[in-house]
Write a protein that binds this DNA or RNA. Structure first.
Lengths: 117, 117
DNA sequence: TTGACATATTCTCATATCGGCATATAATGA
DNA sequence: TCATTATATGCCGATATGAGAATATGTCAA
Protein backbone atom coordinates (compact mmCIF):
# COMPACT_ATOMS: atom_id res chain seq x y z
CA UNK A 1 0.00 0.00 0.00
CA UNK A 2 1.18 3.49 -0.71
CA UNK A 3 -1.37 5.83 0.69
CA UNK A 4 -4.46 4.50 2.37
CA UNK A 5 -6.71 7.28 1.20
CA UNK A 6 -6.12 8.16 -2.42
CA UNK A 7 -6.47 11.55 -3.97
CA UNK A 8 -10.22 11.23 -3.65
CA UNK A 9 -10.57 13.75 -0.86
CA UNK A 10 -10.20 17.49 -0.58
CA UNK A 11 -7.17 17.36 1.70
CA UNK A 12 -5.21 15.37 -0.82
CA UNK A 13 -6.43 17.34 -3.79
CA UNK A 14 -5.22 20.53 -2.19
CA UNK A 15 -1.88 19.12 -1.05
CA UNK A 16 -0.57 19.72 -4.55
CA UNK A 17 0.59 23.36 -4.98
CA UNK A 18 -0.42 23.51 -8.66
CA UNK A 19 -3.94 22.58 -7.74
CA UNK A 20 -4.11 25.31 -5.15
CA UNK A 21 -2.86 27.66 -7.85
CA UNK A 22 -5.66 26.53 -10.13
CA UNK A 23 -8.24 27.15 -7.46
CA UNK A 24 -6.74 30.56 -6.80
CA UNK A 25 -7.07 31.37 -10.48
CA UNK A 26 -10.65 30.21 -10.56
CA UNK A 27 -11.44 32.34 -7.55
CA UNK A 28 -11.37 35.24 -10.02
CA UNK A 29 -14.13 33.62 -12.04
CA UNK A 30 -14.89 30.96 -14.62
CA UNK A 31 -11.98 30.13 -16.97
CA UNK A 32 -11.31 27.88 -19.94
CA UNK A 33 -8.48 25.36 -19.63
CA UNK A 34 -6.11 27.25 -21.89
CA UNK A 35 -6.32 30.29 -19.67
CA UNK A 36 -5.11 28.16 -16.80
CA UNK A 37 -2.39 26.66 -18.96
CA UNK A 38 -1.07 30.14 -19.61
CA UNK A 39 -1.49 31.27 -16.04
CA UNK A 40 0.32 28.28 -14.56
CA UNK A 41 2.95 27.83 -17.24
CA UNK A 42 2.24 24.12 -17.21
CA UNK A 43 1.59 21.85 -20.18
CA UNK A 44 -2.04 21.47 -21.15
CA UNK A 45 -2.32 17.75 -20.33
CA UNK A 46 -1.03 18.31 -16.78
CA UNK A 47 -3.57 21.04 -16.25
CA UNK A 48 -6.36 18.81 -17.50
CA UNK A 49 -5.20 16.10 -15.12
CA UNK A 50 -5.12 18.43 -12.16
CA UNK A 51 -8.55 19.67 -13.12
CA UNK A 52 -9.78 16.11 -13.15
CA UNK A 53 -8.61 15.55 -9.60
CA UNK A 54 -10.26 18.77 -8.54
CA UNK A 55 -13.44 17.71 -10.30
CA UNK A 56 -13.41 14.35 -8.57
CA UNK A 57 -13.40 15.94 -5.16
CA UNK A 58 -15.99 18.46 -6.25
CA UNK A 59 -13.73 21.48 -5.92
CA UNK A 60 -14.45 22.60 -9.47
CA UNK A 61 -17.30 22.22 -11.92
CA UNK A 62 -17.35 22.35 -15.71
CA UNK A 63 -19.60 23.88 -18.27
CA UNK A 64 -19.33 23.27 -21.99
CA UNK A 65 -19.07 26.26 -24.23
CA UNK A 66 -18.35 25.42 -27.83
CA UNK A 67 -15.07 23.63 -27.90
CA UNK A 68 -14.07 25.12 -24.60
CA UNK A 69 -14.72 23.77 -21.14
CA UNK A 70 -15.28 26.53 -18.66
CA UNK A 71 -14.18 25.58 -15.17
CA UNK A 72 -15.48 27.28 -12.11
CA UNK A 73 -14.74 27.04 -8.44
CA UNK A 74 -16.92 25.18 -5.99
CA UNK A 75 -15.60 26.37 -2.68
CA UNK A 76 -18.01 24.22 -0.68
CA UNK A 77 -15.77 21.25 -1.31
CA UNK A 78 -13.14 22.95 0.81
CA UNK A 79 -15.37 23.33 3.82
CA UNK A 80 -14.19 20.10 5.47
CA UNK A 81 -10.66 21.46 5.42
CA UNK A 82 -11.78 24.72 6.91
CA UNK A 83 -13.81 22.96 9.58
CA UNK A 84 -10.95 20.72 10.53
CA UNK A 85 -8.25 23.35 10.67
CA UNK A 86 -10.56 25.73 12.48
CA UNK A 87 -10.33 23.66 15.64
CA UNK A 88 -6.65 24.56 15.79
CA UNK A 89 -7.24 28.26 15.32
CA UNK A 90 -6.81 28.61 19.07
CA UNK A 91 -3.07 28.35 18.52
CA UNK A 92 -2.70 31.71 16.81
CA UNK A 93 -5.90 33.67 17.17
CA UNK A 94 -6.01 36.60 19.57
CA UNK A 95 -9.70 36.05 20.00
CA UNK A 96 -8.94 32.71 21.61
CA UNK A 97 -6.27 34.22 23.83
CA UNK A 98 -8.93 36.48 25.24
CA UNK A 99 -11.38 33.65 25.57
CA UNK A 100 -8.76 31.62 27.40
CA UNK A 101 -8.20 34.49 29.81
CA UNK A 102 -11.90 34.65 30.57
CA UNK A 103 -12.10 30.92 31.10
CA UNK A 104 -9.11 30.98 33.42
CA UNK A 105 -10.77 33.68 35.41
CA UNK A 106 -13.99 31.68 35.68
CA UNK A 107 -12.08 28.59 36.69
CA UNK A 108 -10.28 30.49 39.43
CA UNK A 109 -13.52 31.89 40.83
CA UNK A 110 -15.18 28.50 40.74
CA UNK A 111 -12.18 27.04 42.55
CA UNK A 112 -12.64 29.52 45.39
CA UNK A 113 -16.17 28.39 46.02
CA UNK A 114 -15.42 24.65 45.85
CA UNK A 115 -15.64 22.42 48.92
CA UNK A 116 -14.68 18.95 47.71
CA UNK A 117 -11.29 17.32 48.38
CA UNK B 1 9.61 13.99 -11.10
CA UNK B 2 6.96 12.65 -8.83
CA UNK B 3 5.72 15.46 -6.72
CA UNK B 4 7.35 18.85 -6.94
CA UNK B 5 6.81 19.72 -3.31
CA UNK B 6 7.52 16.82 -1.01
CA UNK B 7 5.92 16.21 2.33
CA UNK B 8 7.86 19.16 3.70
CA UNK B 9 4.88 21.44 4.01
CA UNK B 10 1.82 21.54 6.20
CA UNK B 11 -0.63 20.86 3.36
CA UNK B 12 1.08 17.61 2.52
CA UNK B 13 1.61 16.58 6.11
CA UNK B 14 -2.07 16.94 6.77
CA UNK B 15 -3.18 15.18 3.60
CA UNK B 16 -2.60 11.88 5.36
CA UNK B 17 -5.64 10.93 7.49
CA UNK B 18 -3.55 9.19 10.14
CA UNK B 19 -1.58 12.33 10.68
CA UNK B 20 -4.75 14.35 11.13
CA UNK B 21 -5.82 11.74 13.65
CA UNK B 22 -2.56 12.19 15.51
CA UNK B 23 -3.03 15.92 15.64
CA UNK B 24 -6.59 15.44 16.84
CA UNK B 25 -5.31 13.23 19.64
CA UNK B 26 -2.68 15.74 20.61
CA UNK B 27 -5.28 18.47 20.71
CA UNK B 28 -6.31 16.90 24.00
CA UNK B 29 -2.82 17.47 25.38
CA UNK B 30 0.71 16.15 25.41
CA UNK B 31 0.99 12.38 24.81
CA UNK B 32 3.71 9.73 24.66
CA UNK B 33 4.07 7.73 21.46
CA UNK B 34 2.58 4.57 22.89
CA UNK B 35 -0.62 6.38 23.75
CA UNK B 36 -0.93 7.33 20.12
CA UNK B 37 -0.14 3.80 19.04
CA UNK B 38 -3.04 2.55 21.13
CA UNK B 39 -5.35 5.36 20.06
CA UNK B 40 -4.71 4.88 16.35
CA UNK B 41 -4.38 1.11 16.32
CA UNK B 42 -1.31 1.48 14.15
CA UNK B 43 2.07 -0.19 14.61
CA UNK B 44 4.59 1.79 16.64
CA UNK B 45 7.07 2.37 13.81
CA UNK B 46 4.40 3.85 11.58
CA UNK B 47 3.34 6.22 14.29
CA UNK B 48 6.93 7.30 14.83
CA UNK B 49 7.26 7.91 11.12
CA UNK B 50 4.12 9.98 10.96
CA UNK B 51 5.31 11.92 13.97
CA UNK B 52 8.54 12.63 12.19
CA UNK B 53 6.74 14.13 9.24
CA UNK B 54 4.66 16.23 11.58
CA UNK B 55 7.78 17.32 13.39
CA UNK B 56 9.46 18.30 10.14
CA UNK B 57 6.68 20.68 9.26
CA UNK B 58 6.58 21.97 12.82
CA UNK B 59 3.10 20.70 13.57
CA UNK B 60 4.29 18.88 16.68
CA UNK B 61 7.08 19.28 19.18
CA UNK B 62 8.77 16.75 21.44
CA UNK B 63 9.91 16.74 25.01
CA UNK B 64 11.96 13.97 26.58
CA UNK B 65 10.63 12.44 29.74
CA UNK B 66 12.52 9.40 30.92
CA UNK B 67 12.32 6.82 28.19
CA UNK B 68 9.22 8.45 26.79
CA UNK B 69 8.94 11.21 24.25
CA UNK B 70 6.04 13.45 24.93
CA UNK B 71 4.58 14.96 21.80
CA UNK B 72 2.53 18.09 21.82
CA UNK B 73 0.67 20.02 19.22
CA UNK B 74 1.94 23.17 17.61
CA UNK B 75 -1.14 24.51 15.90
CA UNK B 76 0.69 27.53 14.49
CA UNK B 77 2.09 25.32 11.78
CA UNK B 78 -1.45 24.92 10.47
CA UNK B 79 -2.06 28.60 10.09
CA UNK B 80 -1.04 28.69 6.41
CA UNK B 81 -3.73 26.13 5.68
CA UNK B 82 -6.30 28.13 7.57
CA UNK B 83 -5.27 31.32 5.84
CA UNK B 84 -5.47 29.76 2.44
CA UNK B 85 -8.78 28.02 2.85
CA UNK B 86 -10.28 31.06 4.54
CA UNK B 87 -10.34 32.93 1.26
CA UNK B 88 -12.88 30.38 0.04
CA UNK B 89 -15.10 30.69 3.07
CA UNK B 90 -17.36 32.91 0.99
CA UNK B 91 -18.72 29.76 -0.61
CA UNK B 92 -20.52 28.48 2.46
CA UNK B 93 -20.58 31.16 5.10
CA UNK B 94 -23.81 32.99 5.83
CA UNK B 95 -21.83 35.99 6.93
CA UNK B 96 -20.58 36.35 3.39
CA UNK B 97 -24.05 35.92 1.95
CA UNK B 98 -25.10 38.91 3.95
CA UNK B 99 -22.03 40.85 2.95
CA UNK B 100 -22.74 40.06 -0.68
CA UNK B 101 -26.27 41.34 -0.29
CA UNK B 102 -25.02 44.61 1.12
CA UNK B 103 -22.46 44.99 -1.64
CA UNK B 104 -25.10 44.33 -4.29
CA UNK B 105 -27.25 46.97 -2.74
CA UNK B 106 -24.41 49.47 -2.77
CA UNK B 107 -23.61 48.64 -6.36
CA UNK B 108 -27.20 49.17 -7.39
CA UNK B 109 -27.33 52.54 -5.71
CA UNK B 110 -24.05 53.60 -7.20
CA UNK B 111 -25.35 52.53 -10.62
CA UNK B 112 -28.34 54.87 -10.27
CA UNK B 113 -26.09 57.88 -9.83
CA UNK B 114 -23.74 57.02 -12.69
CA UNK B 115 -23.60 59.06 -15.88
CA UNK B 116 -21.07 57.31 -18.10
CA UNK B 117 -22.09 55.13 -21.10
C1' DT C 1 25.93 -5.68 33.35
C1' DT C 2 21.66 -7.63 31.91
C1' DG C 3 17.04 -7.23 30.70
C1' DA C 4 12.75 -4.88 29.88
C1' DC C 5 10.59 -1.05 28.02
C1' DA C 6 9.96 3.15 24.76
C1' DT C 7 10.96 5.02 20.57
C1' DA C 8 13.48 5.77 16.15
C1' DT C 9 15.57 4.13 11.97
C1' DT C 10 16.35 1.16 8.08
C1' DC C 11 15.07 -1.93 4.42
C1' DT C 12 11.80 -3.84 1.36
C1' DC C 13 7.67 -4.11 -1.31
C1' DA C 14 3.54 -2.46 -3.48
C1' DT C 15 1.49 1.39 -5.16
C1' DA C 16 0.39 6.29 -6.02
C1' DT C 17 1.77 10.32 -8.19
C1' DC C 18 3.62 13.80 -11.38
C1' DG C 19 5.39 15.41 -15.61
C1' DG C 20 6.42 14.56 -20.64
C1' DC C 21 4.85 12.97 -24.79
C1' DA C 22 1.77 11.00 -28.09
C1' DT C 23 -2.72 10.42 -29.22
C1' DA C 24 -7.86 10.39 -28.87
C1' DT C 25 -12.10 13.03 -28.91
C1' DA C 26 -14.93 16.77 -30.07
C1' DA C 27 -16.30 21.21 -32.02
C1' DT C 28 -15.65 24.64 -35.56
C1' DG C 29 -14.86 26.41 -40.03
C1' DA C 30 -13.30 26.32 -44.87
C1' DT D 1 -14.28 16.02 -45.85
C1' DC D 2 -10.04 18.11 -44.03
C1' DA D 3 -7.60 21.26 -41.06
C1' DT D 4 -7.54 23.64 -36.86
C1' DT D 5 -8.46 24.46 -32.21
C1' DA D 6 -9.57 22.92 -27.38
C1' DT D 7 -9.42 19.49 -24.18
C1' DA D 8 -8.97 14.73 -22.32
C1' DT D 9 -6.69 10.30 -21.96
C1' DG D 10 -3.14 6.78 -22.06
C1' DC D 11 1.43 5.21 -21.46
C1' DC D 12 6.09 5.74 -19.57
C1' DG D 13 9.74 6.70 -16.37
C1' DA D 14 11.28 8.73 -12.08
C1' DT D 15 10.22 9.27 -7.58
C1' DA D 16 7.53 9.63 -3.28
C1' DT D 17 4.93 7.22 -0.06
C1' DG D 18 3.05 4.06 3.45
C1' DA D 19 2.92 -0.36 5.75
C1' DG D 20 5.45 -4.34 7.64
C1' DA D 21 9.26 -6.41 9.81
C1' DA D 22 13.69 -6.28 11.75
C1' DT D 23 16.84 -3.79 14.18
C1' DA D 24 19.14 0.15 16.45
C1' DT D 25 19.20 3.51 20.20
C1' DG D 26 18.34 5.03 24.62
C1' DT D 27 16.56 4.77 29.42
C1' DC D 28 15.54 2.73 33.62
C1' DA D 29 15.61 -1.08 37.13
C1' DA D 30 17.50 -5.02 39.27
Amino acid sequence: MARAATTADAFNAVAEPRRRQILDELAGGERPVNDLVRALGLAQPQVSKHLRVLREVGAVEVREHGRQRLYRLNGEALKPIHDWVKTYERAWSERFDELDAVLDELKREEGNGRDDG
